Simulated scan of single mutants.
Amino acid sequence: MERSQTWPAVVFDIGGVLTTSEGGVPELSRMIGVEPERFSGPYWEHRLDYDRGSLPTEYWPKVARDLGLEWSDEELARIDLFDARRWSQIAPGRLEILTALQRGGVTTALLSNAPASMARIVKAADWSAGFDERFFSCDLGLIKPEAKIYEVVEERLGAQLVFFDDRPPNIEAARARGWQAHLWTTPEACREVLDGLGLPTP
């Protein structure tokens, strides 16, 4: 369907918005055999560089070192694939929202801090095929909440943007650029926002 020139484009984060990401850390820690509280610190401490485009062979050894562990190349690849795959399953209630927007002619986009392995999994997922644009930090060498990554989205989509993200700093950065940015809570709350803007909803 031809995209509307009057409606704003709607931009979604992935983890914690379209997919449920936070539960993956306990699952991954159990797989590795480390307590979630101990695993979470190293996992997130080095994540921004990984999201910006560093290699899994750079990221995971840092996590292992901080945990006092060593992983073989095979173990590293298995851990990275497990971590990436947990982002590929869209959470309940999200697909209906995306389908209504896309069938209604609204421009939709993804904007995610994501390493290359995650981006590859998401790009291959059926639910992501309908987006007009998919912006991944690893592809751009930029991460939220840096202003430049929002500027790239604006250049591609235009100035009228509605944005859903689960992290307040990312929301604040988007609002500073004039986006209609909303902290993600539930699909129902998202539909209320979209209804209020006159956009198609399920």
Rank of each mutant, 00 (worst) to 15 (best):
A125G: 08
D139T: 09
W60R: 00
F164K: 00
C138K: 09
D126S: 11
S88G: 13
W184C: 02
A124C: 04
A64V: 06
K123W: 05
S21T: 06
E146H: 09
L194F: 01
I79Q: 08
V34T: 11
S88N: 04
S72K: 03
T19E: 08
L81P: 00
V10C: 07
T186V: 07
D139C: 06
A84D: 10
L101F: 14
P42S: 03
Y59W: 03
A91M: 03
V11F: 12
G93V: 10
S21I: 12
A147W: 05
M118Y: 00
G53D: 00
Q180N: 13
S88C: 05
D195F: 06
R3P: 01
L98D: 02
R3H: 10
V153N: 04
S29N: 08
E146R: 08
V17C: 08
G16D: 01
G178D: 12
P26I: 01
Q180K: 15
V193K: 03
R94S: 13
E27F: 06
S112W: 12
D66G: 05
M31E: 13
T20H: 14
R103L: 11
I143Y: 05
F164I: 01
E45A: 15
A119V: 02
K144S: 05
A181F: 12
E188V: 13
P169K: 09
L110M: 11
I90E: 00
W184E: 03
H46R: 13
D13F: 01
E2G: 11
I14C: 04
D80G: 02
V122L: 14
F82E: 04
S137P: 01
D66C: 03
L110N: 04
W179K: 01
D73V: 11
G105T: 12
G141Q: 10
E58L: 04
A129G: 05
L18E: 03
W127L: 07
Y43R: 00
P145W: 01
T185G: 04
L81Y: 08
R30G: 14
F82Y: 14
R86D: 05
R134L: 09
A64P: 02
D83H: 14
P145H: 01
I143T: 15
V152I: 12
R120D: 07
G41T: 10
H182T: 13
P61T: 00
G53E: 01
Q180A: 14
H182A: 09
G158Q: 09
R47G: 01
I171P: 00
V152W: 06
T99Q: 15
G41K: 14
L142I: 09
L194H: 03
E146W: 14
L197D: 03
S4A: 13
E35I: 04
I32F: 03
E188A: 15
R120E: 15
T6A: 12
S137W: 00
V122S: 05
L69N: 02
M1D: 06
K62G: 01
S88Q: 14
L67R: 05
L48N: 11
A181S: 06
Y50V: 02
I121Y: 05
I121W: 13
A124T: 07
E154M: 11
E58C: 03
Q102H: 12
R3M: 08
S29Y: 03
E37L: 07
K123M: 09
A173L: 07
R30L: 11
R103G: 11
L110G: 05
S29E: 08
P42D: 10
A147F: 00
C190T: 15
S128C: 06
A100H: 07
P169S: 09
G141V: 11
L194A: 02
V193P: 00
S29M: 05
G178A: 10
L67A: 03
S137N: 02
F82M: 08
